[in-house]
Design a protein around this nucleic acid. Structure first.
Lengths: 208, 208
DNA sequence: GTCTATATCGGGATAGAC
DNA sequence: GTCTATCCCGATATAGAC
């Protein structure tokens, strides 16, 4: 099972694990070194400092999220199946890798300026898929509505419960099993909720 | 404008500001002292250590959020106006005090165990208002559906955009003005979205 | 490339004078 | 109750031998 890795890969693997769990401020270089089976000095030999190691990990992780997002939203599927596909994939992925969401959110608060830079570097082309959503809303559902709000609603319904998981679990006293079941249920509930909402506009006056 | 404060109040005011902006790990006792116009030693005279000062601030802030939540959801309003009221209030409040949301989320990651304790101490009685929502969904809309999901959906749509604000702003290149406008629009859009979704269930088969 | 040892510094906390 | 001075530790980073 252990693929024979070179030192750099071992360091990156370890760094990923620790940064994901504890964020930038919470991470100790010592812990990364221990996990990689080397010492601190060697960390600095491969990566100048903590910042640059973090940046490497962040870039990679963030790209993993956004590339899948682009892939789904720019595909040729019809809108409702597309949303269903997206929600299903994301709830599944993030409920099983909740550290990724925590990690992104954490980075947002701990290093807002760097985050901005990095996002600009990774060209995400948001106009493209906002335009795509806008067109599909109009052509397939007959809705002329700001696609940004719809897009944010979809993200919110899929992602928020993962972000707030510890809080929800404490407040509603939910066991880990119940929580897992909760996320399973949402794969079904969220697309239905969104679909109902979108189709409900047909008979009311449009907003914005 | 300057209300003449005693030292303890000055410290708490300063601590609130800094903790809210920077979270526990990001906060320096020195910065709090400077802002309060005193020195570090005096901080430790009034509050044993950083932990206890933080706990005081957190408790107070968290209670401010949840008490309003209870008030609205346990009131006697009909469900749809209640949701509208809730969404309106929360989007308004948190978009103008986004540090509060950041603060709670941050605390969730930085001090998960303490968060749990504190939540248990503040009796939030979540069963009460889940039951209330369940009853209203049934009586007013004829829906037999898990109120937890609906409740989480409402929270998600209201809160998530604030949580992800820096990210959304970077990705979609939104100016501060455009962002403020965006939140204004949501006061209208979110209740409509939810209302459409709930009424859409009437003619489809129920889930869960 | 990898290690041990150490420099350096920031920051929480305390001692003790006033 | 408020201050100055200082302790002390943890954590990043570097020097230098092998």
């Amino acid at each position: 099972m252990e693929s024979p890795q070179n030192t750099e890969e071992k360091i990156l693997d370890a760094a990923r694990q620790v940064f994901h769990q504890k964020g930038f401020n919470g991470t100790r270089m010592q812990e990364i070194a221990n996990l990689a089976g080397i010492n601190k000095a060697l960390l600095h030999y491969y990566f100048r400092n903590k910042e640059s190691l973090f940046e490497k990990v962040f870039n990679e992780t963030f790209a993993r999220i956004t590339s899948k997002m682009k892939e789904i939203f720019l595909s040729d599927m019809a809108l409702l199946p597309k949303i269903e596909n997206f929600v299903h994939f994301y709830i599944h992925f993030i409920s099983h890798h909740s550290y990724v969401v925590h990690f992104i959110i954490n980075a947002m608060y701990e290093k807002p300026e760097q985050l901005r830079e990095i996002i600009v570097k990774q060209n995400i082309l948001p106009e493209l898929f906002l335009e795509k959503i806008r067109k599909q809303l109009k052509d397939e559902i007959g809705l002329e509505i700001d696609p940004l709000h719809i897009y944010v609603n979809i993200l919110a319904l899929a992602i928020f419960p993962v972000v707030a998981k510890p809080l929800l679990q404490s407040i509603f006293s939910l066991s880990d099993d119940r929580m897992a079941q909760f996320f399973e249920e949402r794969k079904q509930i969220v697309p239905t909720f969104i679909s109902n909402a979108l189709q409900g506009y047909e008979k009311s006056t449009n907003v914005v």
